[in-house]
C-alpha cells in the first residue's frame, strides 16, 4: 500500500509505503539482483547475460503510475492523494564491484547521458512535476545493495527541499527574470571561486566546492559553471566534464580514509512549471562521516529543529579533499 498523507504542520507530503517493509536486505554477492543473469543461474532483475547500463522500475516503488487508490480516508486536516509517479533503479555497470569512480571514463560519460534521457523521459509524463536523480552509497546511509547503482524518483509534486531552494532563487532574481546575472548560484559560484579556499576542483564546465554554508563536514557541491537548469541543457563536452567531476569527487572520498566513503548524492534540476524558478543545476554530495570512525547523526538539533551543526571548517575539509584529489594521472 502506498499513498501521500499531508503533514499539515510542516505543510508537506509524507509518503506512506508499507510494502517497502519486506525489501531485500543485503543478499549475498552471488545473488545480487543487479548483476546480469548468469546463463542457467538464478534470474536477477536483469534477464540479459550482459549489459552496459540498465534501468528498471523499482520493485518496491514509493510512487507508481497508475497509482493504487489510497486505502485510508483523509482527515479534516490531512488530504490523502494517490502516490503517482515513478521509481527507477539505474545500474551503472554490470560489474558487481566498484563505484561511480571506477567506471571507465567513456562509461561514466554515457551514464550522464542515460541520466539525461531519464530526466527528459520522466519529465514528459503528465503526472510528474519533479525528477530526483540520486545515489545512496554505503551501509551508513542504509544501502542494502552494494552493486554500483543509483535511483530516480519522479515526484507528482515539487519536494520541499527543491521547492525551498527554488523559492530562494526566485527571490534572489526578483523581478529581473532568471539568467546568469540574476542567479543566486551563479553569484555563489563567483564568491567561491574568488575566495578559492573551499574549491576542491574545477574543470572547464563544473566546479566542486565545499560550500561556505556546508552542513556536513565533507559536503561537496558540483555546480555547473554555465547558468543551466538541468542535464538536458548541457552540451556533450559538458556531459564529459560532469562525468569526470563526479568521478573525481567519489575517487577523492574513497582515497580520504582508504575505504568506500558512504554518501548520498542528489541532483538538483529544474521542476516542471508552474514553479518559483527553474534554478541552477548542481549536484550535492552529502556524506555522513565526520571522521574516519565517526558518523554525523542527525539528532535533536538537526531532526528536531532543522538546524545543522557542522563542527568542522569547510575551508579545512576542502583542503583535505584537494590533497587526495588525483589530477592527470
Amino acid at each position: 500500500m502506498s499513498e501521500l498523507r499531508w503533514h499539515p504542520l510542516l505543510e508537506q507530503w509524507v509518503i506512506t509505503a508499507t510494502h517497502r517493509q519486506d525489501r531485500t536486505y543485503k543478499p549475498p554477492a552471488d545473488h545480487c539482483p543487479l548483476c546480469p543473469t548468469r546463463p542457467g543461474g538464478e534470474p536477477t532483475e536483469i534477464p540479459a547475460s550482459s549489459y552496459q547500463i540498465a534501468v528498471f522500475e523499482n520493485r518496491f516503488p514509493s510512487f507508481r503510475t497508475p497509482a493504487p487508490e489510497p486505502a485510508v480516508d483523509p482527515t479534516p486536516l490531512s488530504p490523502v492523494e494517490p502516490a503517482r509517479g515513478r521509481c527507477e533503479v539505474v545500474c551503472y555497470t554490470p560489474d558487481h564491484e566498484g563505484s561511480l569512480a571506477t567506471l571507465d571514463e567513456e562509461h561514466a560519460f554515457r551514464l550522464v547521458q542515460v541520466w539525461t534521457d531519464r530526466y527528459r523521459t520522466l519529465m514528459a509524463e503528465p503526472e510528474v512535476r519533479y525528477v530526483l536523480i540520486f545515489e545512496n552509497r554505503g551501509e551508513a546511509v542504509g544501502v542494502t545493495l552494494h552493486h554500483p547503482h543509483g535511483q530516480i524518483y519522479a515526484f507528482p509534486y515539487v519536494p520541499p527541499v527543491a521547492q525551498r531552494e527554488l523559492e530562494a532563487q526566485a527571490r534572489f532574481h526578483g523581478g529581473r527574470g532568471e539568467g546568469p546575472e540574476t542567479c543566486l548560484l551563479c553569484r555563489q559560484l563567483e564568491i567561491e571561486r574568488r575566495d578559492g579556499r573551499r574549491v576542491v576542483a574545477e574543470n572547464e564546465a563544473f566546479v566542486a566546492v565545499v560550500p561556505f554554508y556546508a552542513r556536513y563536514p565533507y559536503e561537496v557541491h558540483v555546480i555547473a559553471r554555465r547558468h543551466v537548469s538541468a542535464l538536458t541543457e548541457i552540451s556533450i563536452s559538458e556531459q564529459r566534464a560532469l562525468a569526470r567531476m563526479l568521478q573525481g569527487v567519489v575517487a577523492a572520498y574513497d582515497r580520504l580514509y582508504g575505504f568506500p566513503f558512504p554518501y548520498v548524492m542528489v541532483m538538483h534540476q529544474a521542476p516542471k512549471p508552474p514553479a518559483p524558478a527553474l534554478g541552477h543545476f548542481h549536484v550535492e554530495f552529502l556524506p555522513p562521516h565526520r571522521t574516519r570512525e565517526k558518523l554525523k547523526y542527525l539528532a535533536g538539533c538537526e531532526q528536531g529543529a532543522g538546524s545543522f551543526i557542522n563542527d568542522t571548517l569547510p575551508e579545512e575539509k576542502a583542503a583535505e579533499l584537494r590533497a587526495v584529489w588525483t589530477g592527470n594521472d
Partner: peptide, 20 residues
C-alpha cells in the same frame, strides 16, 4: 553504446586540484 576499452583499469577525475 560503443565501448572503448579503457587503457587502464580505472580513471579518476582529470581535474587539476586547487582553486581557479
Amino acid at each position: 553504446f560503443p565501448s572503448k576499452k579503457p587503457d587502464r583499469p580505472s580513471t579518476f577525475g582529470n581535474d587539476p586540484a586547487g582553486a581557479g
